[in-house]
Design a protein around this nucleic acid. Structure first.
Lengths: 149, 149
DNA sequence: CTATAATAGTTCGATATCGAACATAAGAGG
DNA sequence: CCTCTTATGTTCGATATCGAACTATTATAG
């Protein structure tokens, strides 16, 4: 095997591990969320709580790394459940703005409690140490990929 | 914020990084594959090349961490494209066995070349070093999650 | 100003994935 | 043998996501 092949295999193996971890974590996450609420929906609520609501769908879509049409769909689900409201942007005739409702905020809080509970059973001190050890590297890699895609 | 909250936030942040990296890598991967071939389809071909074909769908599904019905669908796609053949298992009336075709093998080889090319533009020596540094930790975490899910 | 380009959100059609329910076949216990 | 349980693959209905095309609005260039 050439050096080139070897490094390709390494890269491939690396992203395979990432993919499996992501899948296992997402599955755990999904199971700890109540009926019919998808992890992506929760992420939107969490994003709005952390960075503030009153944002346009396009910006949320960019932050979540999904397309605008996916965001349209997700916002419709959240709106039907009463977790957000979507209003026209008074300053831009094309745009809309997304606001959290009280139900949305409290749902997010309850979800966090349940997810914390679930992960607490699986993530012990050793895993915690491991995560802290490599977090900075992951962040750097994420930024690199995001910039150079 | 309590210690409990803090550690929950750390875990959350960690898996968020994993999720974003996975998404960026998968998107790059998908774009470097030819028309209509999904990363998951490629992974099945790659799995069969590396570990040998003549395997039942159920085992492939378990290895790929997807449900059996998803595997049924993916195998149909690969079969329609002529990359695999699926035959009944002579030793088990319920089962089937999946075999690679020559077209499947050569498609996999070409795909690897294209993917290597694409990632070569983005993954430099620094990223390579980083990946090697944390690969063992990721593997350990993956095994832990897989065992304790 | 006006024409062209860029942006926001939506709609349409397609695909990957899942959970639940099902039919068939193999295995285990009595 | 016969029954109960388990395993394999499929079908059905639902959901998340994407790419492409579209409408409406804003911004930019000449």
């Amino acid at each position: 095997m050439s050096d080139n092949d070897k490094s390709a295999a390494e890269v491939f193996g690396f992203f395979t591990e990432i993919g499996i971890i992501n899948q296992l974590a997402t599955a755990m996450f999904a199971k700890s969320l109540p009926d019919g609420v998808h992890p992506s929906h929760f992420s939107i609520l969490n994003h709005l709580v952390r960075l503030g609501d009153g944002r346009p769908p396009a910006r949320i879509a960019a932050a979540m790394q999904v397309t605008k049409n996916t965001m349209t769909h997700s916002l419709k689900v959240l709106s039907d459940r009463g977790y957000i409201t979507v209003a026209p942007d008074p300053d831009d005739g094309r745009g809309k703005l997304v606001y959290l409702t009280d139900a949305g905020r409290s749902f997010r809080d309850r979800a966090i409690a349940r997810v914390t509970e679930t992960f607490g059973h699986v993530i012990g001190p050793d895993q915690h140490t491991l995560m802290r050890r490599i977090h900075a590297d992951l962040e750097e890699l994420r930024k690199h990929l995001d910039t150079n895609r």
